[in-house]
């Protein structure tokens, strides 16, 4: 089983991020279970979305405490929370951040990637919603999902301009990490 934890503020699209990733896994023949946990249940309040993936139906319903992968949509959350808590020894973190001023300490086997997702989103979508760029980065950083599957998800989920913009955002997020890995 793979466990993914997403950190965001309510309204930043964490649920959609979980859904899109889960749908990509679904299209690749896996079973996924995506669900949110709201803190204060207010726009802007810290919240989590969770995603579990397995080859058989996912039955466990608890929150995720020891994730394989972390996606941090809003890096300001890291000021007050240990967003990396419980990350597996060989876990991978993807952070939506422009610069790397505040690099969290990670263990030897853990990997951390920074992606200027909001910048990519502004260029591709005209709005600072970095979710799809982050999904592209996730596929590249983890090797869990094919880029084509993500593009198929966008094709099915979005239409017109949004489809065009999100396709570009996913590709750019993917390529950004591919370049870092080189």
């Amino acid at each position: 089983m793979r466990e993914i934890r997403i950190h965001a503020r309510a309204g930043q699209g964490a649920i959609t991020t979980g859904y899109l990733l889960g749908y990509a896994y679904f299209l690749e023949g896996k079973y996924a279970y995506a669900f949110p946990h709201f803190g204060a249940a207010r726009m802007g309040a810290p919240m989590n979305a969770f995603l579990r993936v397995d080859d058989k139906p996912v039955r466990i319903r608890s929150q995720i405490y020891e994730p394989d992968y972390l996606i941090i949509i809003d890096s300001t959350l890291m000021r007050d929370f240990n967003c990396l808590s419980g990350l597996k020894e060989d876990g991978i973190v993807i952070i939506n951040a422009k610069d790397k001023e505040e690099i969290p300490k990670v263990k030897a086997g853990q990997k951390i990637f920074f992606l200027p997702a909001n910048e990519i989103a502004l260029n591709t979508l005209g709005r600072p919603l970095g979710n799809t760029a982050l999904i592209g980065a996730f596929a590249s950083a983890t090797g869990e999902l094919k880029l084509e599957t993500l593009l198929e998800v966008v094709k099915q989920r979005f239409q017109g301009k949004a489809q065009e913009g999100n396709t570009q955002a996913i590709k750019q997020g993917y390529e950004y990490i591919q370049n870092l890995k080189r």
Binding site: F26, Y31, A32, Y33, A34, F35, P36, H37, F38, P57
Partner: peptide, 12 residues
Amino acid sequence: VDGFYLTHGIET
């Protein structure tokens, strides 16, 4: 149907 766990849970 359990609130959030199921109502907001996305699965196959």
